[in-house]
Simulated scan of single mutants.
Amino acid sequence: MADKHGDFVWYELMTTDAAAAQEFYSGLLGWSFEDSGQEGVDYRVFSAGETQIGGVLALTDDMTEGGARPAWLGYVRVDDVPATVEKVRAAGGGVMVEGQEVPGVGPFALLSDPQGAPFYVIDDRSGQDSGAFAKYAPREGCCAWNELVTDDPAAADRFYRDLFGWEKGEAMDMGEMGLYQMYNQGDYGLGAMMQRPEQMPVSTWAHYFRVPLIDPANDYVAANGGQVVNGPMEIPGGDYVLQGVDPQGAFFSIIGAKGG
Rank of each mutant, 00 (worst) to 15 (best):
R77N: 14
W72S: 02
P70H: 06
E86K: 13
E65N: 09
M63Y: 12
G55D: 07
L73A: 09
G66V: 03
A71R: 09
G67S: 10
A83Q: 13
E86Q: 15
L57C: 03
G74H: 03
Y75S: 02
A58R: 03
A68G: 04
V56A: 08
A71P: 03
V78L: 10
V76N: 00
Y75H: 11
D80E: 11
P70Q: 07
V76D: 02
L59H: 09
E65V: 06
Y75P: 00
K87F: 06
D79A: 07
D80C: 06
V85C: 07
A68M: 07
G67L: 06
T60E: 15
D61Q: 13
M63L: 10
P70F: 02
T84D: 04
W72M: 08
G66H: 05
D79C: 07
A83P: 09
A58F: 12
R69K: 11
E65P: 00
L73S: 10
A83M: 13
R77W: 10
A58M: 12
D62L: 05
V78I: 11
W72R: 00
G55L: 06
L57W: 03
V85M: 09
A83G: 15
Y75D: 04
R77K: 13
E65M: 15
K87A: 15
V56G: 00
W72K: 02
E86D: 15
G66A: 14
T64R: 07
M63F: 13
T64W: 10
V78C: 03
M63D: 13
D80N: 05
P82V: 11
R69V: 15
V76T: 07
L57P: 04
D61E: 15
E65R: 13
